[in-house]
């Protein structure tokens, strides 16, 4: 009796499994990592890409709660790249600020040298 129940259970799980994707746990982990990394390099909460990433990550997590694993995976994949773009943009803008600073210092030096001669 319990054997038959078990078989029915397995059959049901198999059928259900056909229609749904697995839980995208690994992808969620990657996305969380990417968001944390973007924040670690100094992405601020107002940044468009970071807002997108965090909103989609939260939506992906609630999709998992609703057992809509395909939607969760899609959202998490997009959120990962949103976060990576946020990180890349922060790094670029930092290097631009460094460049501006260095240009200022070079101008000052050239001015000094001009006065010296």
């Amino acid at each position: 009796m319990s054997n038959r129940l078990f078989a029915a259970g397995v059959a049901f799980m198999f059928l259900a499994g056909c229609a749904t994707d697995p839980i995208p746990a690994e992808q969620i982990r990657l996305t969380e990592q990417a968001v944390a990394q973007a924040k670690a390099v100094g992405a601020v909460e107002q940044m468009d890409e970071l807002v997108l990433a965090e909103t989609k990550l939260a939506a992906a997590q609630s999709a998992i709660a609703d057992q809509d694993y395909k939607r969760a995976r899609v959202l998490a994949e997009q959120a990962e790249l949103d976060a990576r773009l946020a990180e890349a943009r922060v790094l670029t803008s930092k290097s631009e600020a460094q460049l501006a600073d260095l240009h200022g210092k070079l101008n000052r030096l050239r001015k000094q040298l001009g006065e010296q001669q």
């Binding site: 790249l81 949103d82 990576r84 773009l85 890349a88 943009r89 670029t92 290097s95 460049l99």
Partner: peptide, 20 residues
């Protein structure tokens, strides 16, 4: 599109670092 944008940013960053 996101991968393209990320690649573009990395390209800019590398260029900036070389310039620095």
């Amino acid at each position: 599109q996101r991968y393209s944008a990320i690649a573009t940013e990395h390209g800019k960053l590398t260029q900036n670092n070389e310039r620095l």
